[in-house]
Design a protein around this nucleic acid. Structure first.
Length: 257
DNA sequence: ATGGTTGCTTAGCAA
């Protein structure tokens, strides 16, 4: 079972890239973030023609997540239980082939100390509570998406310049650690120890050609699922194409089915 | 060097 995550920064702009990538890679599951449209504006038909089912949880202009899968989905949960109708749409949980898959677009946080930063930390606390209340560390479970956090300095192209900044501040990393403490494994790190491997490069200042990036898109699983994980890779190719997203896909393969 | 680029919406915000 192959599961991928990709922040595509607008499904409407990125549609041809995503379709080409799906045709070439045929993952069982693709979790998308920042679709930037409501459900009724999501271009569902071309995905259905490729054999994919869709669960879409979107809003106008900002945020929005979608989970595409070759198999049927069950137990669909959109947002945190009890969220207001106008809450930002950043979480979509489904069960596919017996694996609970939580697709997240964790808030960016803008700047350390800002209102958006506080919102990010609150959101991360809610996410940990969601795990406590609705998830079981003994299950086959996976959370993936744009975490908007570089867990360690080796996940940053210039750790000195970034020290204490947004996406790598102590409080963000501590919140992520609390999630890990619940019982999750960063499966990329299970297979790769190298530094300088990234999933996002700023559009500005030639970020990609200079490899000025961060590893902020992740796939984390419970121990039980991590034991079945045979490979994890970051596919840099889509970042080098015309009109790319600023993020590139992360893919994990599991010995299931 | 508080810049730079992209997307949504159309001047300013979010990333």
């Amino acid at each position: 079972m192959k599961i991928a995550t990709w922040n595509i920064n607008s499904i409407n702009v990125r549609l041809p890239l995503v379709l080409d990538w799906l045709k070439a890679n045929r993952p069982d599951v693709l979790c998308l973030q920042e679709i930037k449209c409501k459900e009724d504006k999501f271009p569902a038909d071309p995905f259905r023609e490729l054999g994919y089912n869709l669960e879409v949880f979107g809003q106008q202009t900002y945020n929005g997540v979608a989970t595409l899968s070759l198999a049927e989905t069950a137990d669909v949960q959109k947002g945190f239980p009890g969220d207001a109708e106008d809450a930002q749409r950043r979480l979509l949980a489904t069960t596919i082939n017996g694996v609970k898959i939580i697709n997240v677009y964790i808030p960016n946080g803008s700047e350390v100390g800002s209102e958006k930063y506080d919102y990010k930390l609150d959101w991360l606390a809610k996410l940990r509570k969601f795990f406590d209340d609705y998830c079981n560390p003994k299950d086959l479970l996976l959370i993936c998406g744009d975490f908007n956090i570089a867990p360690e300095d080796r996940d940053i192209h210039d750790p000195k310049a970034w020290a204490g900044q947004i996406l790598c501040s102590d409080a963000e990393r501590a919140a992520l650690q609390k999630l890990e403490d619940w019982g999750l494994v960063d499966v990329f790190r299970q297979h790769h120890e190298d530094e300088g491997v990234f999933t996002w490069w700023d559009y500005r200042g030639g970020g990609f050609p200079r490899n000025h990036g961060l590893r902020i898109d992740h796939i984390w699983t419970t121990d039980k699922l991590a034991e079945l994980c045979s490979a994890v890779w970051i596919d840099k190719a889509p970042r080098a194409l015309e009109r790319p997203s600023d993020h590139t896909p992360v893919v994990a393969e599991f010995d299931l089915e």
